[in-house]
Computed example of a mutant assay.
Amino acid sequence: MEDDSGGHPDREGIKTFAFPVGSSRAGVGMQISPMAPEYPWHTGAPLDRVHRIDFHVVMLFTGGPVTHMIDFAEYQASAGDLLWVRPGQVHRFSRRSGYRGTVLTMQPGFLPRATVEATGLYRYDLPPLLRPGPAQLAGLTGSLEQLEREYTDTETLPLSLHAAVLRHSLSAFLLRLAHLAASSAEAGRRQADTTFTRFRDAVERGFPTNHSVSAYADALGYSRRTLVRAVRAATGETPKGFIDKRVILEAKRLLAHTDLPIGRVGVAVGFPDPANFSKFFHLHTGVTPVAFRAELR
């Protein structure tokens, strides 16, 4: 990925780097090379600064761990892992990690539309960090090695046939990669579903006294980050937002269907101090508990 094309800043002040066609063998729309200090595959790119690319980057690691930022989320990759950065995404290299393995870059438009759709090249919902099993890794590694042999062989075929063979070899690798990405996403969704279900049930039992996201995470054995991802995937909101909505729902039910004093309603949903309960209720509904009850009667 030798970047001799420079970069231009976008409206966010982040430089965007184009695919460096001039440094590609025979000018084809892809490159493949080792990731190692002696190979300047990232020349010109601001390694430790956030930057944007308008092409695909796939890194297959043979060492690690490496911490790499993609779209402002940190991913730690080790030997046998892959990172897939898609066009338009921002990323940043780690200052302290040595990148070892193979890097593949692809220019948008190098592959036909049918292949682009079949391989999910622009599925931004798929995870960028992929961890293949032994058999999957062997298949991906073998496919990538074959692609590298075809890429470096510019002597035995005319340029038009060379490019065609590269497209076929690249498609074979990407089909394997896309299958891994889709499988990983589905496994992640199943895990998120399980995590969210446990969290939802715990909140249902505990919301009258427990409004702490950290307390739920600790009780369930999850990190706070895992809980945030699972709840956001299932509901589109944060764990704190989910808890607060359940508390408000119960408060509304008690205000509407019982004659409990406002202070007692607050205690029932975890607010011993009536003033704190009123502030919380007003913040989330725009009205006070008293006004809410009055509207219904």
Rank of each mutant, 00 (worst) to 15 (best):
Met1Thr: 12
Glu2Gly: 14
His8Lys: 14
Gly13Met: 03
Thr16Ile: 12
Thr16Phe: 02
Gly27Ile: 09
Met30Ala: 11
Gln31Thr: 13
Ile32Pro: 05
Ile32Glu: 05
Pro34Glu: 14
Ala36Phe: 03
Ala36Asn: 09
Glu38Leu: 06
Tyr39Ala: 11
Thr43Leu: 15
Gly44Thr: 11
Gly44Ala: 12
Ala45Lys: 14
Ala45Arg: 15
Pro46His: 07
Pro46Val: 11
Pro46Asp: 15
Ile53Asp: 08
Ile53Glu: 12
Val57Glu: 15
Thr62His: 14
Gly63Ser: 15
Met69Phe: 10
Ile70Asn: 06
Asp71Gln: 13
Ala77Trp: 01
Gly80Cys: 05
Asp81Ile: 08
Leu83Pro: 00
Arg86Glu: 10
Gly88Ser: 02
Gly88Lys: 04
Gln89Gly: 03
Arg92His: 00
Arg92Thr: 07
Arg96Asn: 13
Arg100Ile: 07
Thr102Trp: 03
Thr105Met: 07
Phe110Arg: 03
Thr115Ile: 15
Val116Glu: 15
Tyr122Leu: 13
Leu126Gln: 09
Leu130Ser: 05
Arg131Ile: 03
Arg131Lys: 10
Pro132Tyr: 01
Gly133Val: 05
Thr141Phe: 11
Gly142Cys: 04
Leu144Met: 15
Glu145Val: 14
Leu147Val: 07
Arg149Gln: 15
Asp153Lys: 02
Glu155Pro: 02
Ser160Trp: 09
Ser160His: 11
Val165His: 12
Val165Ser: 09
Leu166Met: 10
His168Cys: 07
Ser169Trp: 07
Leu170Val: 08
Leu170Pro: 01
Leu170Lys: 06
Phe173Ser: 02
Leu180Asn: 01
Ala187Asn: 07
Thr195Tyr: 06
Gly206Asp: 11
Ala215Trp: 05
Tyr216Pro: 01
Asp218Cys: 06
Ala219Lys: 03
Thr226Ser: 09
Val228Trp: 14
Val228Asn: 12
Val231Lys: 03
Val231Gln: 02
Val231Ser: 01
Val231Phe: 03
Arg232Ile: 05
Ala233Met: 04
Ala233Val: 02
Thr235Arg: 14
Lys240Asp: 02
Phe242Trp: 10
Phe242Glu: 08
Ile243Gly: 00
Ile248Ser: 01
Leu249Val: 14
Ala256Ile: 10
Thr258Gln: 05
Pro261Ala: 08
Gly263Lys: 13
Ala268Gln: 08
Pro274Gly: 00
Asn276Glu: 15
Phe277Ser: 00
Phe281Asn: 06
Gly286Thr: 11
Gly286Trp: 00
Val287Gln: 09
Thr288Tyr: 05
Pro289Gln: 03
Leu296Tyr: 05
Leu296Val: 09
